[in-house]
Computed example of a mutant assay.
Amino acid sequence: MAMLKSLKAFAVLDGARGRPRADLAAAARVVAALSRFAAAHADAVAEIDVNPLLLLAEGEGAVALDALLIPHGKAPAHGHH
């Protein structure tokens, strides 16, 4: 949660400008789960990219709209490394 609070856009996620508060707990769970996955598979996974992660309204969760997982030794087709 501290990482989320450090984001420049945190105020918007926290309900600024009349927007509903985003599901910050779901975002924190996603970051933690992704970190655990990356650590558990560090020998096989070179890179993980989730972008964008859509945060729904508080209590409604989060949805990864696009994701890329690059195993070690594989060059991605779109030029990232």
Results as ranks from 00 to 15, higher is better:
L4S: 02
H81L: 14
R21M: 14
H80R: 13
A42I: 03
V50H: 00
E60Y: 04
A39E: 15
D43F: 00
A2L: 15
L54N: 00
A40Y: 04
E47W: 03
A33D: 09
R21E: 14
G18N: 03
A62S: 09
L34Q: 04
V50T: 04
A40S: 15
A26G: 13
M1C: 11
L56I: 01
A28W: 00
M3N: 05
H78F: 15
S35M: 11
L53W: 03
F10H: 09
L55A: 10
A46H: 10
D49L: 15
V63F: 12
A46L: 11
A26N: 11
D49Y: 04
D66M: 10
V12I: 15
S35L: 14
L69G: 06
A62Y: 03
F37L: 15
I70H: 00
F37H: 12
A40Q: 13
A42K: 08
R21G: 06
V12Y: 03
H80L: 14
L54W: 04
A75M: 11
S35W: 06
F10P: 08
A42N: 03
R36W: 01
A25K: 10
A77S: 12
A26Y: 08
A62T: 07
N51Q: 05
A11V: 08
G15D: 09
A44P: 01
A9W: 01
A9L: 12
I70M: 08
G73E: 04
D23E: 10
A46V: 04
A40H: 05
I48T: 01
P52Y: 01
G61A: 07
L65Y: 02
A67R: 02
D14M: 11
A40I: 06
V50N: 01
L68G: 08
D66Y: 07
L68K: 14
M3C: 00
A64G: 11
D49G: 08
R29I: 07
D66I: 09
L34T: 13
I48R: 00
R19K: 15
A42V: 10
M1T: 10
L65W: 03
K5Y: 02
L56H: 10
A44M: 08
I70V: 15
S6G: 13
V12T: 14
S6C: 07
L53N: 07
A22L: 05
A62D: 06
G79F: 02
